[in-house]
């Protein structure tokens, strides 16, 4: 049976007067990884912004159905309740999500407290291990500025997983990272998917990253979803010229 946790229907998104997304249709099933792939300006990050209810955009038409319920008409309060508990967000720059000089420990406690949840070290240990982070104690004692970009991105995943959301939105989280680090971050996302049965939407410009973890891929260009299907089909039998070019442009080892 199909269980579409998120479905986007004819979604239009505008900045000021101009349409950045012109009628997108997408869905993701529970426990899947959906990758939205496109160049900068394709509107792929705008879709994430629409889901999280960003103030700078307008939505002239369409629906964003989360478990069958439209998110667009939601009041701020209701949306806020949903975000962070059932929908998690990780951004490209993890520094934006953390206070650089506050201990991770304190920041995690605050997040939990604001959702009226207890701080349980064992639970945290279990969660950290499940996404491949060792030395929980050391990590909790350190401050974001002391750690590398890759490490911060992994902690951002951990922070998003604190609430054990059903849907995790990741906006270009690997773009600023080295290839090896990017792979380890996607590995962690896979572990999140397997261990927690979390549904993941990952936005990226690199089809190579998508090839690594996606169950489903949506290719976006100039505000439109031009191809959307199971990852295998897109990667091995692309229909659109644009998709073929994207595939060709992924760097390949050659000798």
């Amino acid at each position: 049976m199909q269980d579409r946790i998120l479905e986007i229907k004819d979604l239009q998104i505008a900045y000021d007067e101009e349409l950045a997304v012109k009628g997108a249709n997408l869905f993701v099933e529970r426990g899947e990884v959906l990758c939205i792939v496109g160049e900068s300006g394709s509107g792929k990050s705008t879709v994430i912004r629409a889901i999280t209810g960003n103030k700078q955009i307008k939505i002239p038409g369409g629906q964003i159905l989360f478990e069958g319920k439209d998110l667009i008409p939601l009041k701020n309060r209701e949306r806020q309740k949903l975000l962070g508990t059932r929908i998690g967000l990780i951004q490209q720059n993890p520094a934006g999500a953390f206070n650089p000089i506050r201990k991770i420990d304190k920041q995690f406690r605050e997040t939990l407290k604001s959702h009226r949840l207890p701080f349980l070290k064992e639970e945290l240990d279990k969660m950290f291990t499940s996404i491949g982070l060792k030395n929980t104690t050391d990590i909790l004692k350190s401050r974001p500025y002391e750690m590398s970009g890759g490490m911060n991105q992994r902690i951002a995943i951990a922070a998003a997983m604190l609430m054990d959301p059903e849907l995790l939105l990741c906006d270009e989280i690997t773009s600023a990272l080295d290839v090896t680090t990017a792979i380890s971050v996607t590995d962690e996302l896979l572990r999140v998917k397997n261990e927690h049965r979390t549904t993941i939407i990952l936005v990226t410009h690199n089809l190579g990253i998508a090839a690594n973890i996606a169950d489903r891929i949506a290719i976006m260009s100039k505000g439109e979803v031009i191809e959307f299907d199971k990852a295998d089909r897109i990667l091995h039998d692309p229909q659109k010229e644009y998709t073929k070019n994207l595939l060709r442009d992924v760097p390949k080892l050659s000798s």
Binding site: T180, G208, P251, K252
Partner: peptide
Amino acid sequence: SARRQSIQE
């Protein structure tokens, strides 16, 4: 990691 991130076929 480079092999994993590139599309081989």
